[in-house]
Design a binder for these strands. Structure first.
Lengths: 107, 107
DNA sequence: CGTATTCATGGCGATATGGCCATGAAAGAA
DNA sequence: TTCTTTCATGGCCATATCGCCATGAATACG
């Protein structure tokens, strides 16, 4: 079974937790092809600027994004390169769920 | 940028949310090499049996595990095959965070 | 039959999360 | 300097999550 320590599961869960919000996933998607400032992300998310800032802080604290200050702006960018594989995994779960639901409907 | 719909981000976030708890990650690890009943998982998690049942329900509702009832037991098993890649992504984030922390210490 | 075991669920309290508002710091413009 | 823009943070409230306890359903065993 090779179980890991409680600490390691907590560390993993912190990363997953940072990804567990639709607005943060939208932000990561928007950052996929380059850095964006908060003022660009705010209308995309469609929430208050303070709310977007807090979401970005969650992603930054998890080590998923990093920021660069330029004058009065703060630009955020994705710091990791494996997100694509992560989405594929999640999408495969969603597809399987969808297929099963459809199969259940057709019975 | 190719942003997706709010619904798609919510669907993705539900999957991530189901993974965002150390006890549930421990459970998935324990299920990695085969099915286990609740009575086996409960001492591993170290929580109340009802707590473990609820964690399993979260994973089941997300479509990550499925169950099989045999007599008075319920056996759970992982339903998806891409978890390994997901762990690799999360571990790469953790490793990078750790490396950066160490680098900051050594300055 | 009655009893024991296994598991799921409702309830409840403590804590965490997420949203907006208000505020303040920092940088640039006038 | 004063005003504006950009962003982060504290406060507050509503909601969600998580833990345990208690209970009930279903099956197995005497």
């Amino acid at each position: 079974m090779n179980l890991k320590s409680r600490r390691q599961y907590e560390a993993r869960a912190r990363i997953a937790k940072a990804l567990a919000h639709p607005s943060r996933l939208l932000i990561l998607d928007a950052l996929a092809d380059g850095e964006r400032c908060v003022c660009e992300l705010t209308p995309l998310v469609g929430a208050d600027q303070s709310t977007v800032s807090k979401h970005l802080a969650v992603l930054r604290n998890a080590g998923i994004v990093e920021d660069r200050k330029d004058g009065v702006m703060t630009y955020y960018r994705v710091k990791i390169c494996c997100l694509q594989g992560l989405w594929q995994c999640i999408e495969s779960v969603l597809k399987q769920n969808f297929d099963e639901q459809r199969a259940a409907m057709e019975v």
